[in-house]
C-alpha cells in the first residue's frame, strides 16, 4: 500500500462540537429557558440565585436531551421535510446511535442534577416532560393522530411548572395556568404554520390536521382554540402572578389574536393562495409575539413586586 492509496480512501465526516449542540435544538431550549425562568421568578418563594441558575440550566439540558431523542427517532421524516433536512442526523453528521446515546445520557444527567440542585417534585416533572415529549409525542402520537400537536403541546407547556416547582417544591393554581396558557396556544400556533407549510408534512406522511381533515377544518380549529385561549389568558391576570401590566398586555394581545383567528376562519383556500398566505403568516408571527409578551408581562409583574408596584397590591 502506498501513500497515494491511503489518501484515496474516503474519510467518514466527523461531527464537530456544533453538530452536537444542534442536536439539542437550541432554539427550543431558549424558549424553555425563558418560560422556566418566568415560572421560577413568578413563584411567591425566592431561591438562591446559584440554585436558580443551575436549575434552569438542568431544565434546559433535559429539554435538549428530549430534542436529541426526537431527532434520533424522527431522522427518516426529518430527511424528507425541507425545514428539517439539515438537522445533524439526516444530514449524516451525527450517527443515529450517537443521538440516542446523547439523548439518554443527558436525560438521566439532567433529572438527577435537578433533583440534587432543587427538589424531587421539579426533577419528577422534568423526567415526565422528557418521557412525554420523546415517547408519548415523538414515538406514539406524532405519526398516529392529527391531534398530535394538541397533546404533544403539553411537553412544551411543562417548563414554567418545573420552574415554579424549583422555587416552591410543589404545584399551584398559577403554575397550572401558565401550563394551560402554552398548552392552548400551541394548536393555533402550529396549525397556522401547517396551513402554509402543508407540502412538507404531506410529503413526510405526518398526519397534520391539514393533511387528514383539510384546511377548512383546520381553520375552524384555529378559531375554536383561540376562543378558548382568550378567557384563560385574561383570567390569569386576576391571580397572584397577574396584575395591571399583565392584564393590559393580555387584553390587547388576545383581541389581536382573536381578530387574526377570525380572519383566517373567514378565508378560503383560493384567497389564501392568491396572496401567498399573508394572513396565516402574520398570524403565525403574532403567535410568537403573543407567548413571548404574555410571559414577559408575568416577569414584569414579578420584577415590579419588590417595589410595591406589581400584582394587585
Amino acid at each position: 500500500m502506498t501513500d497515494a492509496s491511503i489518501n484515496t480512501q474516503t474519510i467518514q465526516p466527523e461531527a464537530g462540537f456544533g453538530d452536537y449542540v444542534a442536536l439539542l435544538k437550541p432554539r427550543v431550549m431558549s424558549l424553555v429557558v425563558f418560560t422556566a425562568l418566568v415560572g421560577l421568578l413568578a413563584a411567591p418563594v425566592g431561591v438562591h440565585p446559584m440554585i436558580g441558575f443551575a436549575s434552569i440550566l438542568f431544565i434546559a439540558v433535559g429539554a435538549g436531551a428530549s430534542g436529541a431523542l426526537n431527532m434520533w427517532w424522527d431522522a427518516d421524516i426529518d430527511a424528507v421535510m425541507k425545514r428539517t433536512a439539515k438537522r445533524p442526523v439526516p444530514a449524516g453528521k451525527v450517527e443515529p446511535g450517537e443521538a440516542l446515546a446523547v439523548g439518554v445520557a443527558l436525560s438521566g444527567f439532567a433529572v438527577v442534577m435537578l433533583a440534587l440542585a432543587s427538589n424531587m417534585v421539579a426533577a419528577g416533572l422534568l423526567a415526565f416532560t422528557i418521557f412525554f415529549y420523546a415517547v408519548i409525542y415523538t414515538m406514539w402520537l406524532k405519526r398516529w393522530t392529527p391531534q398530535n400537536i394538541v397533546i404533544g403541546g403539553a411537553a412544551g407547556a411543562f417548563p414554567p411548572m418545573i420552574g415554579w416547582a424549583v422555587a416552591t417544591g410543589g404545584i399551584g393554581l398559577e403554575s397550572v395556568l401558565m401550563f394551560l396558557l402554552i398548552f392552548m396556544w400551541t394548536p393555533p400556533h402550529f396549525w397556522a404554520l401547517a396551513l402554509f407549510m402543508n407540502a412538507d408534512y404531506e410529503k413526510a406522511g405526518v398526519p397534520m390536521l391539514t393533511v387528514t381533515h383539510g384546511r377548512r377544518v383546520t381553520r375552524n380549529h384555529i378559531l375554536a382554540y383561540t376562543l378558548l385561549l382568550a378567557p384563560l389568558a385574561i383570567g390569569t391576570g386576576f391571580t397572584s402572578i397577574g396584575g395591571p401590566v399583565y392584564l393590559a398586555v393580555a387584553v390587547v394581545l388576545n383581541a389581536l389574536f382573536l381578530i387574526g383567528a377570525v380572519r383566517i376562519w373567514r378565508r378560503d383556500e383560493a384567497t389564501s393562495q392568491d396572496d401567498k398566505y399573508k394572513v396565516e403568516k402574520s398570524f403565525f408571527g403574532l403567535s410568537l409575539l403573543y407567548l413571548f409578551l404574555h410571559f414577559g408581562a408575568i416577569l414584569a409583574e414579578a420584577a415590579l413586586r419588590p417595589y410595591g408596584l406589581g400584582g394587585w397590591g
Binding site: D3, I6, N7, E14, F17, Y20
Partner: peptide, 21 residues
C-alpha cells in the same frame, strides 16, 4: 504525494475536544 500532518478532520476533532473540556 505527501501525507499532510494537518487535516480538516484534526481541526474539527480539536474543536470538539476543546468544547467538551
Amino acid at each position: 504525494m505527501s501525507l499532510r500532518a494537518e487535516h480538516e478532520l484534526h481541526r474539527r476533532r480539536a474543536g470538539r475536544n476543546i468544547g467538551l473540556a
